[in-house]
Computed example of a mutant assay.
Amino acid sequence: NSELEQFAYVASHDLQEPLRKVASFCQLLEKRYSAELDDRGRQYIDFAVDGAKRMQVLINDLLTFSRVGRVQQSWKPVDLDASLDRALTNLTLAVEESGAVVVREQPLPELLGDSTSLTMVWQNLVGNAVKFRRPDVPCRITVGCVREGDVWHLTVADNGIGIAPEFADKVFIIFQRLHARDEYEGTGIGLSLCRKIIEFHGGRIWLDPKPPEGTLIHFTLPVLPEAPTHTTAELLAPAALTPRSGDTP
Results as ranks from 00 to 15, higher is better:
116 T>W: 10
103 V>I: 11
67 R>F: 00
130 V>R: 07
152 W>P: 05
128 N>R: 12
154 L>C: 12
225 P>E: 09
23 A>K: 05
174 I>H: 00
111 L>S: 08
12 S>T: 10
202 G>C: 05
182 D>V: 13
235 L>I: 15
192 S>T: 04
162 G>V: 14
26 C>R: 01
219 F>I: 05
32 R>S: 11
112 L>T: 08
146 V>M: 07
28 L>D: 04
82 A>C: 05
121 V>R: 02
121 V>N: 06
177 R>H: 04
139 C>I: 11
150 D>K: 12
194 C>F: 03
109 P>L: 15
194 C>R: 00
46 D>G: 09
24 S>K: 01
144 G>I: 13
223 V>Y: 02
160 G>F: 11
133 R>C: 15
232 T>S: 09
60 N>M: 02
132 F>C: 07
211 P>Y: 14
231 T>Q: 01
225 P>N: 07
212 P>L: 07
81 D>A: 14
16 Q>R: 15
37 L>D: 01
31 K>M: 13
127 G>L: 12
165 P>A: 15
242 T>R: 08
221 L>R: 00
233 A>C: 07
159 N>M: 14
232 T>E: 12
142 T>K: 15
191 L>Q: 03
210 K>S: 03
13 H>V: 10
124 N>Q: 15
20 R>W: 07
61 D>C: 13
8 A>G: 02
194 C>L: 02
183 E>H: 10
80 L>K: 06
60 N>Y: 03
48 A>P: 02
161 I>M: 13
67 R>V: 00
91 L>Q: 06
128 N>Y: 14
11 A>W: 00
149 G>E: 12
100 A>K: 02
153 H>Y: 14
99 G>S: 12
143 V>G: 13
101 V>M: 09
198 I>R: 00
4 L>E: 00
39 D>N: 13
229 T>A: 10
133 R>M: 15
82 A>G: 03
232 T>M: 09
37 L>F: 11
151 V>E: 08
167 F>W: 06
35 A>V: 07
24 S>P: 01
13 H>A: 09
4 L>I: 00
135 P>M: 14
74 S>R: 10
22 V>E: 04
136 D>I: 11
106 Q>M: 15
44 Y>W: 10
61 D>R: 08
184 Y>T: 06
193 L>K: 00
125 L>W: 12
242 T>M: 07
86 R>A: 15
130 V>M: 13
55 M>L: 09
236 L>M: 04
168 A>I: 10
145 C>Y: 08
124 N>R: 13
202 G>N: 03
171 V>S: 05
68 V>R: 01
215 T>P: 02
37 L>G: 03
154 L>H: 08
59 I>V: 09
172 F>H: 03
177 R>E: 05
40 R>E: 09
99 G>W: 12
206 W>Q: 04
2 S>V: 00
66 S>M: 01
213 E>F: 10
14 D>S: 10
224 L>A: 04
178 L>F: 07
100 A>G: 06
238 P>N: 00
58 L>H: 08
39 D>A: 15
236 L>H: 06
25 F>A: 03
48 A>I: 14
207 L>H: 07
39 D>G: 14
35 A>M: 05
137 V>C: 04
94 A>N: 05
51 G>I: 03
127 G>V: 13
234 E>M: 14
